[in-house]
Amino acid sequence: MTSNKINPEKWVGNYADYLYNYAVVRVSDAEIAKDLVQETFLAGLKSAINYQGIASERTWLIAILKRKVIDHYRKINSKKGKAEVRMNYSNQTDAEGDWLEEQVADPLSLLENDNIENEELGFAIQECIAQLPQKQSDVFTMKTIKGLSTEDICNELDINPSNLWVMIHRARTSLMGCLNENWFEL
């Protein structure tokens, strides 16, 4: 019943960005997130024999990454004295003596939901980008996520501008269709 095959050569191309985004919102540090992704790939490679093909490759890698994130927090918390909980009720000295009630989170606030929703949106977009052909997704991520200029992309990928716009157009059209299904109506 091995419906899913493991294919480590394509890991970086297919999943690096997805795992990276997953990690970066959880450790909020670009360098650490990068290291965690790298460790995940290595750990995956080592235990590739245990992969039974029941879950998809990506789910399997995410599961490993989850453990890595937990390990990371264990490591930084095991240093002496870090594990204790410290609470600063107020970090402004001039606010001393003021009522603490003023600083309590607003239970009716919807701002936190926005963050969660945006993170989910990010994963939905990422899934859609992963479905694009390699060339298109390269151009689209460079242009849209990294915000590189048209000239730079053309130089790096060795294409001409009108070529680039055609690819951007195709990528955007398929993304619109894909997000229409996986996210709310566009």
Binding site: Y20, N21, G122, I125, K146, M176, L179
Partner: peptide, 17 residues
Amino acid sequence: KNNRLTTLMDKAPLQCL
């Protein structure tokens, strides 16, 4: 639709390597 896609892309905290 295109404008909406841009808004969504801006809203999502996406980063890439």
